[in-house]
Design a binder for these strands. Structure first.
Lengths: 258, 258
DNA sequence: CCATCTTTGTGCACGCGTTCACAAAGACAT
DNA sequence: ATGTCTTTGTGAACGCGTGCACAAAGATGG
């Protein structure tokens, strides 16, 4: 999960739990698929399967929105699509700026999933003067100098940061100062923002590391022993005149470090 | 957070809670920064601030790994870097294949964060014959026909899917059949995999929708009333001979839908 | 109009994760 | 060696999220 919540410590917003909010887009996607196939109604069981969740969880999630189902029948697909869209705020237009038009930024600019759901890329911004004016995804890249003006002129409240890590915090501060209150951060850094600003983080490297952890477990623990034995610097080695008090193996037991 | 856990229902692996595992890469990144600045030791308070978490949480997280700190002093940076790296399995080499070399796939191939931590891009694979042989990130793209051979020859156990949604499930099945047991999925689809295969999902569109939800809340609820009034299809409208039993406004109350 | 059957909506219990608060441990000074 | 001071490691309480299981609601058929 590349998701990284920040701030707003699990506050439930308007009675809807964060965990439920995070699943609404999932339901919406599944429902959109059904809608395109002109399926009129769907049961919690079917929809849950399509969204990859438990049906009881789905029903409880929907119960936070209201009683939109019909017992004995299920949920009206079109109606539910509308209700969830409205709840998520997708019935309105959200202008978005992407800052940092490198490989990732360009990929995001071209990503169809943005435009498809109320999100409109209002501008692409990069600090490199050589990029200025170059078209990416059919839109000219603008220089960072214009950032504040772009934000204000377009009423942008959501910013996407795809810059290198070193530039992210500064870009973030300029975005916030200009009026942005929600940030999607792809840079591998912890952003600090004032209260009232939401930050969500997508970190590709972290996701892979989590997978590696589970992968290593699956591969078995037999290699863990040798790895521990090859430990480079027990913390005691840092101490000055202290040789070792815990025996020849130091504080590194056979199988697992203490 | 673009993170989507799948399978392994919150099973704690080798006694280390999932939530802790998800934070280890964060700590590791902060520690790496300190290490580069040759900081010898760090307190839980300082490190927690750098990683953007609570210090008590950090100490508890580390306690699952073992007692690597020194009371009154803090943690030895180098030693902790090694221990976390080992725990995450980053001391070994992880060959990775990226399937689907569109805008996103190319961005991933160029992403430095992969190579920096034990992950080696072993191959880039795409279904488009026109892509075959074309160099991306200094590496020739190979055709999907070679998928199974590439996986087996390189001993790949981690696959990254960056294909369109329609192709993702099929690619996933081929990867799994060829021996991949961990998948990082960028396609906006729910992948179904057999037991023992881990899937993590990164969904850019979902992240934006979650931000939009909170953004809408910040903007106030005054617009919610009119939006509800403009509801297109109350579910009762679908029924045949039934006009309305709940009064002229149907089942849409003034402020919030029932 | 009544009986049956399907499916929702939810009360309840359980477990994980977070946080507090403090005792234990060790560094450091005297 | 002893005392003080800093910081870790963790016991315990709390809250959120999940899933079970069932009663209520409505559709459907006779």
């Amino acid at each position: 999960m590349a998701t990284g919540r920040t701030h707003r410590p699990a506050t439930r917003s308007r009675g809807i739990p964060e965990a439920t909010v995070a699943r609404l887009p999932l339901y919406l996607r599944a429902l959109t698929g059904l809608s395109e196939r002109s399926v009129p109604t769907v049961s919690s069981e079917e929809l849950a399967a399509a969204a990859g969740v438990n049906s009881a969880k789905l029903r409880k999630d929907f119960s936070y929105l209201g009683s939109y189902g019909t017992r004995g029948v299920g949920y009206d697909v079109e109606y539910l699509v509308y209700q969830i869209s409205r709840e998520l705020g997708l019935t309105q237009d959200w202008p978005v700026v992407i800052v940092g038009i490198g490989n990732l930024g360009a990929a995001l600019a071209n990503y169809g999933g943005f435009a498809s759901r109320g999100f409109r890329v209002a501008a692409l911004i990069d600090a490199d003067p050589a990029m200025a004016g170059k078209p990416v995804a059919g839109m000219p890249v603008q220089h960072t100098d214009e950032l504040e003006k772009i934000i204000k002129d377009n009423g942008v409240s959501i910013g996407v940061i795809a810059t290198p890590a070193g530039a992210a915090q500064q870009v973030c501060e300029r975005l916030v100062a200009a009026g942005v209150t929600s940030i999607l951060n792809f840079a591998p850094t912890v952003l600090s923002v004032p209260d009232g600003v939401d930050v969500r983080k997508v970190d590709l490297s972290i996701e892979l590391q989590i997978l590696a952890f589970h992968e290593q477990r699956k591969a078995g623990e037999e290699s863990a022993a040798e790895a521990a034995a090859a430990a480079p610097l027990p913390p005691a080695a840092r101490a000055a005149g202290e040789a070792d008090r815990k025996g020849p193996d130091g504080d590194v037991p056979a199988v697992m470090p203490a």
